[in-house]
Amino acid sequence: MTQSPTLSRRPASSGSPLPRKKRQRGTDARAGYTFLLPWLLGFIALTVGPMISSLYLSFTNYNLFEPPKWIGLDNYTTLFQDERFLQSVGVTVGYVVFGTPLKLAAALAVAMLLNSKRRGQGFYRSAFYAPSLIGASVSIAIVWKAMFGDSGPVDQGLSFFGINLGGWVGNPSMTMPMFILLTVWQFGAPMVIFLAGLKQIPGELYEAASMDGAGPVRKFFNITWPMLSPVIFFNLLMETIHAFQIFASAYIISNGEGGPAGSTLFYTLYLYLRGFSDFRMGYASAMAWLLVIVVGIITLIFFRTSKSWVHYSGDSK
């Protein structure tokens, strides 16, 4: 039987990239390390040191100017009495829990809409990707504030349907929905990856299902979802990690303050403020490592549970 050329056939169903079936007999350490050399060099020279350094600093009091002072677990214990920290956790979790699935759902829906043999696909693809081209600059903050301000297009659009919320920008309970829409708006990358996955699903499957009288809903759940699950898994993992680390847009839209009323005080924004505005780099490092642990656990859980819902085409052999 031939291999199915499916994207992310096995992003690591067992938490490792090792294919179950060994492609070569034995191991090939020399070739392996030779090819891995660039990454290994970069990892050792530029990444490991700074990572360990930040881990060490998380146990110290370090103000950037004077040598760090060892204080053991103090930073970690202080975190849980810090109201702003707890607020930033709440904000970020809300964003991850609501923003990520919505963004992925939007990306998937649009990808499915574009997955047909019609004219203008290149145009639509470019149009939908365009927002993702724009970097996080002050221009984006100005544009976004205009869109969601009093009597901006969103306000007017909602008023048309009889919903009068006023401007979202200045309303602490509406800034989170605004941020979620901002991330959904920049759905280009996952959309493109979904589209690629969809294109790989053999058309024969749908033809066969049509002959059996399956409707679009059944086709989606019986064919699209399982065939696409490796791609969904990949996007879910990447977008979740990114969502936990949202920084640039948060920094720019709230002018680095996390306002109004702390409603956009995202985790990494608070971490940044602690490290570079308050000069408490030890504290910031503790925040960073706490995030590594939490997101690391979530990543592990993702990999573990993926076995039950992610279907790799090559697994059957």
Binding site: I52, S53, L57, F65, P67, W70
Partner: peptide, 21 residues
């Protein structure tokens, strides 16, 4: 171990110490 970590901390500590004096 602590000394080791300080050393591995690629000069973060030492550079700061240097800058202090």
């Amino acid at each position: 171990r602590r000394h080791f970590l300080t050393t591995v901390a690629i000069g973060t500590a030492s550079a700061a110490a240097l800058s202090a004096c």
